[in-house]
Design a protein around this nucleic acid. Sequence first.
DNA 1: CTGTTAGCGCTTTCAG
DNA 2: CTGAAAGCGCTAACAG
Lengths: 356, 356
Amino acid sequence: MTVSYTYNRVDRVSAESREKVLQAAAELGYAGPDPAARSLRYGNTRTLGVILGEHLTYAFDNPQAVTFLAGIAEVCADRGYGMLIVPIAGGAEDSLRVSEVAVDAFIIWTTTDDDPVLDAVSGSGRPAVIHGGPVRAGFKLVSIDNRAAAFAMGMKTFAGAHRPAILSFPLDSSRKTVLAAGIDPDTVRFPVTRQRLLGYRDAIEALGLDWNDVVVGATATNNEGEARSLAETMFALEQPIDAIAAMSDDLALGVLDAATSAQLTVPETLSVSGWDNSRASALHQLSSVAQNLRAQGALAARLALGEEPGLAPDDWSVVVRASTGEPATQRTEHGNTPIRRMGANREPFVRSDGLS
Amino acid sequence: MTVSYTYNRVDRVSAESREKVLQAAAELGYAGPDPAARSLRYGNTRTLGVILGEHLTYAFDNPQAVTFLAGIAEVCADRGYGMLIVPIAGGAEDSLRVSEVAVDAFIIWTTTDDDPVLDAVSGSGRPAVIHGGPVRAGFKLVSIDNRAAAFAMGMKTFAGAHRPAILSFPLDSSRKTVLAAGIDPDTVRFPVTRQRLLGYRDAIEALGLDWNDVVVGATATNNEGEARSLAETMFALEQPIDAIAAMSDDLALGVLDAATSAQLTVPETLSVSGWDNSRASALHQLSSVAQNLRAQGALAARLALGEEPGLAPDDWSVVVRASTGEPATQRTEHGNTPIRRMGANREPFVRSDGLS
DNA sequence: CTGTTAGCGCTTTCAG
DNA sequence: CTGAAAGCGCTAACAG
């Protein structure tokens, strides 16, 4: 039939025939080429698959993940690619769903080292870009150097402290709330969390403190309320905590709230820092690690599409505000770590090995 | 080949053959059935298409849209459906993209009455659910009664005011910033915005005020900073504004900020209300219209999947806090409007006609 | 400019 | 339990 040409090669069909075809289509209720048949024929789907954590719906509650998604969406909208959110629900059927999804490539929001979904992605044979970690053969990685950033922020947060503590994301998939000292970072299966713990430990040791004395509180979710109650527990310890580095601004805000209730002055009796430089962190004069998750999302999308982006998005920086005792609005740039260099000749913001 | 059975009807193939097939697959690098071919054969894709406003990336910056998405995601994760975000970029090619996308049904985040994307969805012949509006033959609608809710909140916000004003979403797709009196709501092409303006006008008239005196400020984006500067202009008018109903909490927070700078006391000299009952609205004692966008997202997804949900999500309510001059934390339930009744026999939270 | 043919990879009869 | 054949709807290549 000429009908295919009518829809695809407008120039290779006479206006007359074209009109006839369109008319017939209208009568028959034909809605144009079927996309599924098309992608079978073409061998591609013009769709990117996005895999969001252990359960899809957690991700939408997480402003960082949403920002990352916005970056992917930007590139997809520009290139005309669909963005297919894969229905991950934390069950055994997740792997099946990954292999049953019609996409050209995958983008994965950071997950545990041993998430079976990663095997399913490998098994699908399609290109994959992972954000944050874990590092995997065949997967491209988009990530800041979380360890270096945590180290830099740890140095600010813990400077002068005697009883430092860390407020962490969950340490394993059980997501149990934990409060303990001397946690071994290497036992943590979430690579981003692990790298940050390692970075904080680096700072503790650089400051001459003992890691085994450092209390780590891990919340079940990235939730301000939970952070507040953990902080309250920390303030009630025999030797009360005097510095807390939190892995998100939400957690840090919970700490600030608890500090207000406990009438602790920040930063004099308590130094606090967060992560991701949210609007709220600026509002509350909270020192925070800044990174451009939107740019990272866009980068991940470009890599997934097989583009070779020459320009890297900004790397991380430490934004120092009043909560860690330095003059407000001072901004210290970092990122010239051994792993990722800034400046004219900086390396591309991509790694496919070794970070973990 | 027996290979298909290996993957689909595990019971109809001997363990031995199955093993052989799997082994061969591994050697040949066969990654399992191709999803595109599968959906061609099955005639369905197990994927829901989501269309987000005039440009995809705006939506991710809009916490309300994100909450709605979370609701869709919840249902998709549960049912094993993919959630395909259609790459809408505000150009002529958007319609093409809609028809080229392999999905079983569409969910549309509210857009203008005449958005051509809607025609493309109609033309695709696939089921569609629209959130907020516009109302269209063949599309299911999930929406609160924005007019009734705006009326109820208008009555609280404008009570006792002499110079009321409204802070609105854009009035047309040009998204120009506007500040004018006596706007005719019926000229506004965004149905949600139109309904809310109509509701506020109903309140103005019920309070014996003149709509032609009511200043309407429309921001280009849902942005606190822009709201602040519009509010500042309003405060500098010959007869300064003494009540502002805003269509989002973000806008209302900008007003509160401007009020603080202008040393206006809230609610004594300025009454303010917002919309969507965000965390920040509670924090700042801002009266706000509450609706459960997450439940609406979930409902939209169930409808798109052809389910007939018996239970409707909660309807809207007016949450009165200190910013409109009533005792804090008092909560007035509404929703028993002519259009959508609450209570034991309430109508399903779905309409497919007439709201606009 | 138009019509025919083959085949993308799969699953589902239907026979063996 | 396994094999063969047909066809989902499309498009690229080739002939007319």
